[in-house]
Amino acid sequence: MRLVKHPVLCNYYVTYRCNAKCAFCDIWEKPSPYVTLEQVEANLRDLKKLGVSVIDFTGGEPLLHRQLPDFVRLARKMGFITTVTTNGLLYPKNAEKLRGQVDMLHFSLDSIDRETHDRGRGVACYDFVMESIRVALELGERPDILFTVFRHNLRELEQVYQEITQPNGLVLIINPAFEYNGVETGEQLSEDELDFLSAFGKRKGVYLNEAFIQLRRDGGNHVAKPVCRAASTTLVISPYNELVLPCYHLGEQKFPIEGQLFDLYQSAEVQGLAALEGRLPACEGCTINCYMQPSFAVETSKYFWQALPSTLKYNWEKGTWKRMFAMSN
């Protein structure tokens, strides 16, 4: 049964440019403009009308956009929950401008070892993550550590938890790696490794969407009976000010917004493509967390019930439930 029939999330790509070269991502390879404040203002107004509650300002590296603090401030003023994920390279110099404006601030860290982390990111950023944590805490912020899990770094979760997140009172977010568009992430996690993650996710100060684990056990999304609700739960806006459908990672079609996002999203052409969510050939076996997270939240299924405890746990620890409750009234 569908519980929420309107989109809840916007993945807003402010640029595809990035100052890192992560091996498990191809976004940084793309040329890209920067979105404008005028575009963001117009689109946020329409996103509000469409019922969206969370804006994820993303990239590339979102902090490469010098106006990102303005975007986040505007979105929060309009009542949106805001989220930003950064590799940390530019956070210390922008921290004061972002202070108090990002509800869910994530620093990417994939290893306790400097060399290992920097090799995976293609640039020396480990020390910047550590500095970002220090600066954020000094400013009274509560950042999270986003740990992207592969087979090769799975056992490093323990040290990151014991030496970084717990001593600093941070939430450790476990982000199982996923493949897309031929971007390979190495050998898939075994059943025993999935069991290890599932158990780890139950610890205090750790967030793991258990439905992500179940989806991988089930072989991902299946076009015959899709669980993905990417296009109906999530709007993807590109740096070219286009609506991308059914999701960024497939990007089957792109529609120029031209200041008409509300009408565009409700148009027959867009809704027709949205109806194919999870049913396209490329959707078979998909486990992309970015779209499964909202998909599991809007429709009752075994994934909904498995995702619910961790979602409630995270929002309780972060305090975002208060703002979400206020927005619903």
Results as ranks from 00 to 15, higher is better:
14 V>Y: 08
15 T>Q: 03
15 T>H: 09
15 T>P: 03
22 C>Y: 05
23 A>W: 05
24 F>N: 11
24 F>Q: 11
27 I>Y: 08
27 I>K: 02
27 I>T: 15
28 W>R: 10
28 W>A: 04
29 E>N: 02
29 E>Q: 06
30 K>L: 00
31 P>M: 01
32 S>L: 06
33 P>S: 10
37 L>N: 01
38 E>M: 01
38 E>K: 00
40 V>T: 06
42 A>Q: 12
43 N>T: 00
45 R>S: 01
46 D>Y: 02
47 L>M: 01
48 K>R: 07
48 K>E: 10
51 G>F: 06
53 S>N: 09
54 V>C: 07
57 F>D: 02
59 G>R: 01
61 E>L: 02
61 E>Y: 08
62 P>Y: 03
62 P>K: 15
64 L>W: 09
66 R>N: 15
66 R>M: 10
68 L>G: 00
71 F>A: 04
73 R>H: 07
73 R>M: 06
74 L>G: 10
74 L>P: 01
75 A>F: 03
75 A>Q: 14
79 G>M: 14
80 F>G: 00
81 I>F: 03
82 T>Y: 14
82 T>I: 14
83 T>Y: 02
83 T>R: 10
84 V>F: 03
85 T>H: 00
85 T>A: 06
86 T>Y: 07
88 G>K: 12
88 G>T: 04
89 L>A: 07
89 L>C: 00
90 L>S: 04
92 P>K: 15
92 P>I: 14
95 A>H: 07
97 K>N: 10
99 R>A: 14
99 R>K: 14
100 G>N: 11
101 Q>E: 07
103 D>K: 03
104 M>W: 13
104 M>I: 10
104 M>C: 04
106 H>A: 11
107 F>S: 13
107 F>L: 04
108 S>Y: 00
110 D>I: 12
110 D>C: 10
110 D>W: 05
112 I>H: 12
113 D>L: 06
113 D>W: 06
114 R>K: 08
114 R>W: 13
116 T>N: 07
116 T>R: 09
117 H>C: 01
118 D>Y: 10
118 D>G: 04
121 R>C: 06
121 R>A: 14
121 R>L: 03
123 V>F: 15
124 A>Q: 11
127 D>G: 15
129 V>H: 14
130 M>S: 13
131 E>A: 04
132 S>N: 02
132 S>D: 05
132 S>C: 03
133 I>L: 10
137 L>Y: 09
137 L>D: 02
138 E>H: 12
138 E>M: 01
140 G>D: 09
141 E>Y: 05
142 R>K: 11
143 P>G: 13
146 L>R: 01
147 F>Q: 05
147 F>W: 02
151 R>V: 09
151 R>Y: 11
154 L>S: 08
154 L>W: 04
155 R>A: 13
155 R>H: 09
157 L>I: 11
